[in-house]
């Protein structure tokens, strides 16, 4: 499941590129200006993405988790 770590690029894309397209106040989403609502969504998404990566990362299954083969590939 190594390729799942590329999901970590999504938060960067959403937060750094998103504002170029969603830089608007209206429509309000959940009462918040559109740009703010989008960025809040990105933060929630970040946590979800990191959760998926954590659960599928073999480095977290080895005892102590110090197995360096789990990192930097």
């Amino acid at each position: 499941m190594h390729h799942l770590r590329w999901l970590a690029l999504l938060p960067f894309l959403g937060m750094l590129v998103g504002p170029f397209f969603l830089n608007r106040v209206t429509p309000f989403v959940l009462g918040m200006p559109l740009l703010m609502a989008w960025l809040v969504f990105c933060v929630l998404g970040t946590s979800a993405v990191m959760g998926v990566i954590y659960l599928t990362d073999p480095a977290n299954r080895t005892a102590g988790g110090t197995d360096s083969s789990g990192e930097g590939r």
Binding site: A8, P11, F12, M15, M36, L39, V40, C42, V43, T46, S47, V49, M50, I53, Y54, A59, G65, T66, S68, G70, E71, G72
Partner: peptide, 17 residues
Amino acid sequence: LCYLALIYVISYWLLPP
């Protein structure tokens, strides 16, 4: 709201080594 979330993403791979 954003930069901290990105800091944590980076930390996942940066801090353990």
